[in-house]
């Protein structure tokens, strides 16, 4: 297994010690750091960055939760404490550009940090992939073929409605030459996976159904072979939804970064 990920990503501290500075900082996020499933996406984003020759670094142990779940849950104190600490680290390293795999981190860093003194160019990894495709630096060659496969994309709320990013993830899927099928509730009408607003960290209120099951029911109607995600929380919810119907064998839930890595056979 470990023959992949042969390279080790430098931390900012290491890079600065060598007198270098990165083109872009990769903000890994808590899910990307600790959640086993999300870690795979994290590694794949590193492979993409490595493949196209971008000089990048992570904060490593100096990274802390952006404060997103605290803010959505109403704990503005905790959010701002986290934000101030992160901003101090980021500004200390004179970070200009950040890419992140988590739409929640993305939204928070991009929209909610500037007023607290953190001004960076923040992009989501699907936007980076779109940009690399448009520049001709990424294709879909040399790896697994997705030609003709039925793929549906689940819009993360904080990427889609929250920040109007709808095309970037779809661009990454288009080049796969797959059969893209849209759920009825897509793009600005997309249905939440059920994890946002700090729901990820609590049991749902009493109801007749779980939100992720409602979403998977909709996806299953399309008979997809792949459900594409772009958010670690959505990933968990969708994966659980598929598992709920015992369909893990014929339906894969994959992040856009994972699809890109597979299609290009990146190691």
């Amino acid at each position: 297994m470990n023959e992949e990920n042969i390279f080790k990503v430098p931390t900012m501290a290491e890079m600065i010690a060598k007198g270098e500075s990165p083109d872009i900082l990769f903000w890994v996020g808590c899910a990307g750091s600790f959640d086993e499933r999300a870690q795979r996406t994290t590694r794949d984003i590193c492979k993409i960055l490595h493949h196209v020759g971008l000089k990048f670094a992570i904060l490593g142990t100096e990274e802390g939760c952006t404060g997103d779940p605290a803010k959505r849950a109403g704990n503005e104190f905790l959010f701002q404490m986290q934000a101030m600490m992160n901003i101090e680290v980021l500004n200390g390293y004179e970070i200009k550009k950040i890419v992140t795999a988590c739409p929640h981190c993305f939204n928070t860093l991009k929209n909610e940090y500037p007023i607290l003194g953190g001004n960076y160019e923040v992009i989501h990894h699907t936007q980076l992939i779109q940009q690399l495709i448009n520049e001709g630096k990424l294709q879909a060659q040399g790896g697994e073929s997705f030609k003709g496969k039925r793929i549906t994309f689940h819009d993360p709320c904080y990427l889609g409605r929250g920040n109007n990013v709808y095309e970037a993830p779809r661009r990454a899927l288009e080049i796969l030459d797959a059969q893209l099928v849209e759920m009825k509730r897509c793009k600005s009408n997309g249905l939440c996976c059920g994890a946002g607003g700090a729901q990820m960290f609590k049991e749902p209120e009493k109801g007749k159904k779980d939100v992720n099951i409602e979403r998977i029911d909709e996806a299953l109607q399309l008979n997809p072979q792949v459900i594409a995600a772009a958010c670690p929380f959505c990933m968990t919810m969708l994966k659980d939804g598929v598992k709920n119907y015992d369909r893990e064998n014929d339906i894969q839930v994959l992040d856009i970064a994972e699809l890109t890595v597979r299609a290009n056979g990146l190691k």
Partner: peptide
């Protein structure tokens, strides 16, 4: 510094 109970020192263990 994470919503789950993992030590911050382990944050880059994936790396």
């Amino acid at each position: 510094s994470a919503p789950w109970k993992y030590a911050q020192a382990d944050r880059a263990n994936w790396n």
